[in-house]
Design a protein around this nucleic acid. Sequence first.
DNA 1: TAATGGTAGGGGAGGAAAGTACCGTCGTAT
DNA 2: TAGTGATACGACGGTACATTCCTCCCCTAC
Length: 1094
Amino acid sequence: MESRIAPKGTGGATSIDEFIEDVDVEDKAFLIEGRDLSGKTNIRRPPAPQVNAKEEDFIFMQIDTDYYSQVAPGFIKNENAQHDTPIIRMFGITKNSNSVALHVHNFTPYFYVKINTQYAPTLTPEDLLAIRDVLNKLATPQTSLEGAPSIPVKAVELVHEKASVMHYQQDKATFIKIYTGLPRYVNQLRTLFENGSVSYRGSAGMFENVTYESNLPYALRFMIDNEIVGMSWIRVKAGRYRLRERSERNCNTQYEIDVQDFNDVECLPCDGEYSKIAPLRILSFDIECSADKGKFPVAQTDPIIQIANIVKVHGDTEPLVRNVFTLGTCAPIVGSQVNSYRNEQDMLQAWRDFVLEVDPDIITGYNIVNFDFPYIINRSLALHMNKFAMFGRVNGTYSKIKNNTFSSKALGTRETKDINIEGRVQFDMLQVILREHKLRSYSLNSVSAHFLGEQKEDVHHSIISELQAKNEFTRRRLAIYCIKDAYLPMRLLEKLMCLFNLTEMARVTGVPISYLFTRGQQIKVASQLYRKAAEHDLLIPVDKQHISGDKYEGAVVIEPTRGYYTDPVATLDFASLYPSIMMAHNLCYSTLVPPHKVKFYKQEDLIKTPNGDVFVSQKVKKGLLPLILEELIAARKRARQELAKTTDPFQKAVLDGRQLALKISANSVYGFTGAQVGQLPCLPISSSVTSYGRVMIEATKEYVLKKYNKANGYQFDSQVIYGDTDSVMVKFGVPTIEEAMKLGKEAADYVTQYFVQPIKLEFEKVYCPYLLMNKKRYAGLLWTKPDKWDKIDAKGIETVRRDNCGFVKETVQSCLNMLLIDRDASKALDYCKGVISDLLQNRIDLSLLVITKGLGKKTESAPKPGEAAEGGDQKKPPAAAAAGNYHAKQAHVELAERMRKRDEATAPTVGDRVAYVMIKAAKGSKGYEKSEDPLYVLQNGLPIDYQFYVEHQIKQPLLRIFEPVFSNAEEKLFHGEHTRNIFVPKMATTSGLGKFAVVKKTCLGCKNVLANNTDVLCERCQTKKKAIYIERKQEMSVYEKNYADLWVQCQRCQGSLHEDILCSSRDCPIFYRRVKAKKNLEENREILERFLDW
DNA sequence: TAATGGTAGGGGAGGAAAGTACCGTCGTAT
DNA sequence: TAGTGATACGACGGTACATTCCTCCCCTAC
Ligand SMILES: Nc1ccn([C@H]2C[C@H](O)[C@@H](COP(=O)(O)OP(=O)(O)OP(=O)(O)O)O2)c(=O)n1
Ligand code: SF4
């Protein structure tokens, strides 16, 4: 049965010394980090100490909370003993790194319905029973798969001490609290109430057709009620829990305990000892698959050939496991354990067992959720391994794939697959990075280069098959590649402090950490709102409101006084403007006074916003949203303090990302109220916030202008040259940075006093010089201290955008450097001319000409066979395609479509970024006909349309920069001598006569066309023959050196000085250079040969 | 089905519509 | 094969192309 192939050699481990002989060690540092792990090591968790449930509290850090439904086990007291009952299940880790599963019983799902006032006093306990029976008649009871029945409504209770969170309520209202047998009945009953289908005493008038708190995920409901936040430490007091006997075990964790009363599960505050993160086990893995015929592998037919794993314990410096499972033999790999198998089933099975043995809390990798896991699961099904896909902590529960799409304005649309792995967190680094960073490319290669400074070779899948087919050494080559792919995500996770940052976010917002990968901002706000509402006895309505769809008015952008400023410009900026507005003016659902109620309150208790909406003041009742915001802002403040303390630039960037994430969470509280397709939209709040903002920026501008002018004894009249939402850019007129800073600080404090606490205008920075191009488009040299500038700060322009090519970005960046730092405009101009000339003469790297654009919508139009044939004219697209399909042709969309026809599996899909270059095409061709995959261009030697890059990429950006500086920038930049000499690729010199085309050779000396194609030099150059030959020869050695240098770089990257380079990474500049260098080399070699033959 | 923070704004590209230059045809005056 | 006046000129319609305006789309600043 076991088809494991015994490792070769003695003991299976290659020594480090042997390895050094084999390849250069430094280049494979990732293989020998920490101890030698090639041998068998103990990978199990530390043994779980005996626990005395009667004497000891049970404490662990909870990482995942879900639920299942079952007939409660016999040892649990449950009033509906034979019924299908929901049971909360928490997974976590003790501080000793022992895994825990906790079953929480008797937490019953519920929701509320408001009783119309006239009926409220009349309800008796008998009525409640009767209502229960009415509801049970209306609902459709469901039986579990095991055949256990369940009751829709278990009980109905009268609740008097609550009120709706919507509008300021002086009085409590009467609600019924409906307890259900299973979470899903909540949804069912909600629909019944919403449709007005529930009537009692012969009329539906008793119940409002709005329900309360009926749309929370059940597990989150439990967490909220028990004040448990994500990734927090949990305590169950001694005597309140029960350890399961072996025979009662359901989970493969080290401890499995039950709590009879859900109230006994207690969340410990996240400070001191319990602010720490438990020693979580992190598994990073990567699979390789092979496919025939150069096609991208498909799980149905193509085998998994290798799986590499790295296991690390959070907080440890060294990995615990580094291994690879291979199909077929594999030569030993230093520092890593190699497990080889004869057939795929055995390999997969061994890997699955390995995963369970390691018992990781966190599973990471790159794109594991959308590729590796689905592939493994589908592959196991294709191999009929029906009892295979059990990766979670629940025995007998197998992972399944569910397709899903996530769509939000900020993150775009993306298709995802949901995989259930109970008790472990799927920490896919691709998802993390997609959400937290805006990059031009999200390939592992590109991301590693960006954050870790190390390239990663990219082996084309057709080559992977070859490596697999050949021998144990080529398979080792592949295995090393595979291990690196498992290693890099682990490194990224550590270096970007993902676990730490996301743990903090989960704790602050209260959601389980998994929500941070799969859900949006809304659920975070909702989680906080529900918690605060519960504290204040308020209930949250679930109201499918009619949505107008109209946008409300947002912020003001002050009309910029465009130009190039050499005097310092100070920037004043409100700190957390929208949150501080909401706090200052007490804006909340629970403080809003509807128009018809305004007359009932004292004027001084009310706040009327510039939008005309009315709220009660803080004295009367403090809103919930301000309370939530205080916490978020406090968390952000802590993060910023830590940021201020660090000096390491990378660390700073990471901490900046953290505080930014908290800022967005705070701003999303405002966004939540304005989200018309959200849980609880309330436009009076959101439009009041923006209206305050509008008034405030105008006022700020006026205060500054009115004070800082000659009439008040200042040396100059100040000028507000620009402002956006919460900031004003002031030119005080003073010539030095120092004076500008002094005035800026003073002005900020001066203006602040006009506003309500905690609104605060801050002086932040000075720009000098400052180039203001347009609304939301500017660049300047930024100063925060008078003696030395900090950096160039660019907003909105090409250097910070991702939809142009690297060439544009770099050129613009260099120009800004010269213009703003050196203040040498003519140098910048000359530089541009040179660069344009380089471009036209093919001296720019192809990698710099790659443009990327995101694919925001679906491209394929559901290839239904019936719809395929459509005759004649179809002017407008079918109405059904209206939602989420493209209506305009675009370069990247059309290319994606073409690529899809070439190979379905590798083509970009929704949410992906498409990389393309523009190639030459017939005159008058549209852009979308000229875009092409850079890899395809290289493989087929297609010509680049350099002119396009001049006209459509670099021209306007440069003109926008230079126009404020020079008068006739266009003439200077795009018409000089430097635009004349245009590189003509070989192909273009053939006359366009199809098969009669003849390549005309040119003289090597003077480039004139030769009369005789076998000649090398023209007659005039004959005399210089020797000199020309030597020159060529020298050129050749330059090319050779160039190529060799690049080759070495690639060898470094792939970690071997002895093996061929296999990489074809679309994301690596070296790759493009290497291909080009090779081409140069070959061409030149051919010429030299001609020379010699001649 | 369930779930999805907000608005303002620049700028590139495609495409429809309106403009125009050019050309050939046709009717008509001479 | 039969029947034919030649020329200039403006109106008219079709076509190819440039221009303008609008919309879509991406991505950014707040
Ligand atoms: N993602 C964002 C960014 C900003 N804003 C709104 C709310 C902010 O209060 C206002 C100003 O944005 P800033 O970028 O200036 O951020 P803040 O003022 O909130 O924070 P800071 O203290 O960094 O200025 O714009 C928003 O709604 N969503
Ligand atoms: S091209 Fe060379 S340097 Fe770049 S990723 Fe590939 S192997 Fe590494």
